[in-house]
Design a protein around this nucleic acid. Structure first.
Length: 796
DNA sequence: GAAAGCCGGTTCGGG
DNA sequence: ACCGGCTTTC
């Protein structure tokens, strides 16, 4: 047995004994099967060969997956360390570990290969690093490092990184890696990317990474795929070692992950993929719905199990979700059903503007909290607001602060991505691995110590000439007297500090937590924030304390750094009950008794950008997002839209989302907005003249305008449909005609128009909803009519 | 080298 | 509106 097998298995003697004894007893208790429905049992007990479990929202997917693992262990089919179970997020991995622990009674440390794609790849890559020209102690770069590195390369080539931003290149390389294209495999069709130099930079970047002994997230997968492809003996070992493979959220896999899985499952083909094509919402980051749609072709003879009994939502909510998703073309198709009591219909309401929407939802939340319409009271923790884009959150935060409603925002900037945390970590990184040039660069002049661009350029040059790390180059530079004045003294002091801290680390007299405190203290970093008078400084100091506290849970600094490079999350404090506000993406996998889905307006949701960039595919992904949103609700789901919304401080009016048309009317209750006439909308209402495309002028007209919201095409459709419960949603074409007619009729040839980005111009051509406009500054462009406003309606 | 002003971007966001 | 990053200015 080679070392890589030994080191994982030796720790699990207890498991071994248990499985062996179980192997001898055919009729063992199988408590993990209790209460599973027949489909779930099939998902658990179909052990050999490829299995695709199509698990609709709320159908007990995790339950089936964990029971399947318990079953594999219980029947002695595999040892815990012979099961490869992959998830996308650390959260999902943790949850699965916990649940398996409950099923098989405690300690589940025995599953070393249950984890995210990336964490498993790190393990594999550390063992075989030399096969791709790396050392086993390679560092993992995050997006920030990646961009700084690319920026260096770009500047070295004298390219204007304003016009050709590093982010763009990073995104490009990322997409290529998601498709498993190494620099030599990037197809010719991509040659034009990044001003024709994309592949060239990709190549350079990979070379730099190799020299730095570093990898980015994409490499973690890609290197392992390459190792498997180029070393059949290694691949074969793992194919035999992982007797069973399980994959969660298969619809989210990208091509690199797909190849990785296909290679590993290539021998026995004992691969079980769980997923839901209707919940594929990560296309923009490389996920390929095609992987799940193609499963039966990729793995001939696959068993397909459908989990369709939903244990989460009421029939009305399910029906509403099903109605929306039915409009998608590319589906494997599932019909969710439930035994649950009928419950309330999905509620739908339109508002005048985003603020009013937030006000109304705040009121509703208070009502649910008290108990309303004869319902039992719901605690705030049971309620969530799910938005399409994060800027929508602000309206709710503003409102909730005003009325003193406790809330939590889920998502947002993550702890380990904050500037102060990354700075502190850079210090740790240099102490632990003095060769880490990116870390050194980050903090060499933070806090400001007079080592500016010139000094840094000198260090870089010495490093390049001598082929040494930046820290080493600094020593040489000082020894050769290549630096004068303040910079020299400060650099000297900094290097001495690093030497001192490294020595402390070696001696091990201080534990790593104390060492971290010493570093932050002696480097002047803590002091730096104490002297900062800005409002966020106290928070940053607080975060630094948090960081030191987090260190406590690790054995040493190295372990901690390894952990954070892969696990970057926000621990959310418990405590007082709060309403949750999050994006639809962030809500995937969660459920709440009461859910609000605001902002269902065409352009916002479905997002215009998604449709522009990806056409029908984009629209279908948005629709899946709608499906995910509705299916988060257990008992109450309220969808709303606003006729006007302030976006980047511009008023914008919009039509109700086309998804609203797709809601089956018999499962929807249309609510009448409060204060349609009369109600106190004087002070808070936006001035009507500030709204393009709507009316300007007198109070009388303002009143008419407000009424117009509810006479808008979308609203009228809702009203009509509400009166004829059996009616079908209007065909899409009819609706599009309305929009097109409006869009086209709004402009004529020769008209002066305004575009957010291109400025003023004159219409010179009209084709459908696309206009050709001669812009004064930006030249002639084709633009979609909805981006333009007539000059005389430009708000001030 | 540090502060002040300017410009551009601005969905979704795991590892 | 606002932030971050960059350029200009002192």
């Amino acid at each position: 047995m080679s070392d890589w097998e030994m080191d994982e298995s030796s720790a699990f003697d207890g498991w071994e004994r248990r499985s062996l004894s179980q192997r001898a007893m055919p009729a063992r208790p199988t408590p993990y099967l209790d209460g599973l429905n027949p489909d779930q049992r099939a998902a658990v007990e179909t052990i050999d060969g490829p299995v695709l479990v199509l698990a609709g929202a709320g159908t007990g997917k995790t339950r089936a997956l964990t029971a399947r693992i318990a079953h594999l262990l219980n029947t002695g089919r595999a040892q815990p360390n012979e099961i490869l179970a992959v998830t996308f997020t650390n959260k999902a991995a943790r949850e699965m570990k916990d649940r398996i622990g409950q099923l098989v009674g405690g300690r589940i440390e025995g599953m070393p290969w249950l984890g995210t794609f990336h964490s498993i790849c790190v393990k594999l890559l550390r063992r075989h690093a030399e096969l791709v020209d790396l050392k086993a102690n390679f560092t993992i770069l995050d997006t920030d490092d990646q961009i700084r590195l690319l920026k260096q390369l770009i500047r070295a080539e004298d390219i204007d990184d304003k016009r050709w931003p590093a982010r763009m290149l990073a995104g490009l390389i990322d997409r290529w890696k998601n498709r498993a294209w190494t620099p030599d495999k990037v197809p010719a069709s991509e040659a034009g990317a990044y001003n024709n130099r994309g592949t060239e930079f990709y190549e350079q970047y990979q070379e730099r990474l190799r020299i730095l002994n570093a990898v980015d997230f994409g490499d973690l997968l890609l290197h392992v795929v390459r190792i498997f492809q180029e070393n059949p003996d290694v691949l074969e070992k793992y194919q035999r070692w992982f007797r069973y493979i399980l994959v969660d959220e298969y619809q989210d896999t990208n091509i690199a992950q797909y190849l990785w899985l296909r290679l590993l499952a290539g021998g026995h083909k004992n691969i079980c993929c769980v997923g839901d094509d209707d919940q594929s919402i990560y296309g923009w980051r490389g996920a390929e719905v095609g992987n799940i749609l193609r499963f039966e072709k990729d793995f001939p003879g696959a068993t397909v199990v459908r989990l369709e009994q939903n244990y989460r939502s009421t029939p009305h909510i399910l029906a509403a979700a099903s109605g929306v998703i039915a409009a998608n073309e590319d589906r494997l198709g599932k019909t969710l059903w439930t035994d649950a009591a009928e419950g309330e219909k999905v509620r739908l309401i339109g508002h005048w503007d985003g603020e009013e929407e937030a006000r109304w939802i705040g009121g509703e939340i208070e009502a649910y909290q008290r108990g309303t319409r004869g319902l039992a009271p719901y605690p705030l923790d049971d309620m969530a607001i799910l938005v399409r884009a994060s800027f929508q959150m602000r309206a709710f935060e503003d409102r909730f602060l005003t009325i003193g409603m406790p809330y939590r925002v889920i998502g947002g900037p993550r702890f380990y991505e904050r500037m102060e945390i990354r700075d502190a970590m850079a210090y740790f990184r240099v102490v632990v691995s003095p060769d880490d040039g990116l870390a050194f660069e980050r903090i060499v002049n933070v806090p400001k110590r007079g080592i500016g661009d010139k000094a840094q350029a000198a260090i870089n040059q010495v490093a390049r000439l001598n082929g040494v790390s930046l820290l080493e180059a600094s020593r040489i530079l000082l020894a050769e007297d290549g630096l004068r004045g303040k910079a020299a003294g400060e650099l000297r002091a900094l290097i001495d500090s690093f030497d001192r801290w490294s020595a402390l680390l070696q001696q091990g007299e201080l534990n790593h937590v104390e060492l971290a405190e010493v570093i932050l203290d002696e480097s002047g970093y803590t002091e730096f924030w104490k002297n900062d008078k800005s409002t966020e400084a106290p928070g940053r100091l607080e975060n630094l304390k948090e960081l030191v506290k987090a260190l406590d849970e690790f054995e040493n600094l190295q372990g901690f750094l390894e952990h954070v490079s892969l696990v970057m999350e926000n621990e959310q404090e418990e405590g007082t009950p709060k309403v949750s506000i999050m994006t639809l993406h962030g809500a995937k996998g969660l459920e709440f008794p009461v859910v609000f889905l605001p902002g269902w307006e065409d352009g916002l949701f479905p997002s215009q950008r998604s449709m522009d960039e990806n056409g029908l595919k984009g629209l279908e992904e948005e629709r899946r997002l709608a499906y995910v949103g509705i299916t988060r609700a257990e008992r109450h789901c309220t969808i709303s839209f606003a006729a006007n919304r302030r976006v980047y401080n511009q008023w914008q009016s919009s039509l109700p989302s086309r998804f609203i048309d797709e809601l089956p009317p018999q499962h929807v209750e249309v609510l009448t907005p409060p204060g349609l006439y009369g109600g106190g909308f004087g002070a808070a209402a936006p001035a009507a003249e500030a709204i393009p495309g709507i009316m300007r002028g007198s109070d009388l007209e303002e009143r008419a305008t407000r009424a117009d919201v509810y006479n808008s095409p979308g609203w009228k459709r809702m009203q009509t449909r509400a009166q004829q419960p059996r009616g079908m949603a209007q065909p899409r074409e009819a609706r599009n005609m309305v929009i097109d007619a409006e869009a086209v009729s709004a402009f004529e040839i020769g008209e002066r128009v305004f575009h957010q980005k291109f400025g003023y111009g004159a219409v010179v051509g009209i084709e459908g909803d696309k206009l050709t406009v001669d812009f004064e500054k930006a030249g002639t462009k084709k633009v979609v009519a909805s981006y333009l406003s007539a000059e005389d309606s430009i708000p001030f």
